[in-house]
Every structure is written in structure tokens, then in C-alpha cells.
């Protein structure tokens, strides 16, 4: 029983860490939850592979505070994201929008699938090709 408790404590200890400090949090839990969800989709511009929700960089903290300020001012989630995007560009969105710059990235996997499919189709419709050596062997096996 004590072992189980210890195990539970250890498992809890490895939950993903967040950088949000208690003094940043909003009193309203619903608003705070929205802030967390928005922050998880915004990239930290100082440490580019983290979200502002995860990053300890000072600039990430500033942006978390701005997200919360905008929410308290009554902005919708989309308005808050647009506010940050107007300053730092599409790069801050962890899910990039579909536009002419990102078209190849979004379409890439499907194009690759289509290409590979077309290639396989072409190969399977053709009678299997043989090497000259192979053809010669078959030739000799004939009576």
C-alpha cells in the first residue's frame, strides 16, 4: 500500500512541467483555462521549440501576461491570437495557417502519397521486367 502511494507520487512528479507562475494565473478558472489553451498554441520566439506555456524565457512570460490581459479585457480566443500574430507573424502559431506560403507544406504528404501510388500502379500494370541474365536462364531451361 505504501509502495502504491510512492508510485503514485512518482508518477505525478513526472507530469509535464509548465512555466506558468502562480502570480500570473487569473482568478477566474474558466478564463485561466482559456489562457492555458491559447498559450499552448503559441510558440515562444526566444526558444523556438517551446510554447509560451512551457517556456521559462522572460519574453514567454510577457506574452502569457498579455494573453491573460486581453482575455480579461473581454477578447475572444481568436482575437487574442490575432493580437499576438499581428506583432510576431504566422511563425508564432504552432499550427500554421493554410496560405500560399504554407501550401506546399500542407499538401506535401498528400502529393508524396499520390506520387508513390501512381508509381506503384504503373509498376503493377506492367509485366514484370527481367534482366538479360534472367531471360537467358529461362531461355536455356526450355526444352
Amino acid at each position: 500500500m505504501r509502495g502504491l502511494g510512492l508510485l503514485a507520487a512518482l508518477l505525478l512528479a513526472v507530469l509535464p512541467a509548465h512555466a506558468v507562475e502562480p502570480d500570473e494565473m487569473l482568478a477566474d478558472p474558466a478564463l485561466e483555462a482559456r489562457a492555458r489553451a491559447i498559450s499552448a498554441g503559441l510558440r515562444c520566439v526566444q526558444c523556438q521549440n517551446q510554447t509560451i506555456d512551457e517556456s521559462n524565457a522572460p519574453l514567454a512570460r510577457d506574452l502569457r501576461l498579455i494573453v491573460r490581459e486581453r482575455l480579461e479585457a473581454g477578447d475572444s480566443d481568436a482575437e487574442v491570437i490575432a493580437h499576438v500574430r499581428a506583432r510576431y507573424g504566422d511563425f508564432v502559431l504552432l499550427k500554421p495557417p493554410l496560405n500560399e506560403q504554407t501550401l506546399l507544406m500542407w499538401a506535401g504528404p498528400f502529393l508524396a502519397l499520390l506520387g508513390a501510388g501512381a508509381f506503384l500502379f504503373w509498376r503493377m500494370r506492367r509485366p514484370p521486367a527481367m534482366d538479360e541474365d534472367e531471360a537467358e536462364l529461362l531461355e536455356q531451361d526450355r526444352p
Partner: peptide, 13 residues
């Protein structure tokens, strides 16, 4: 001092 004007400009450093 709090960096807000810089953030308005999209400053990263």
C-alpha cells in the same frame, strides 16, 4: 522597463 513597447514592435531580442 517592462518591455511592452518592444513587444508592440514584435521585438524578439
Amino acid at each position: 522597463p517592462n518591455g511592452r513597447a518592444g513587444i508592440e514592435l514584435g521585438v524578439t531580442g
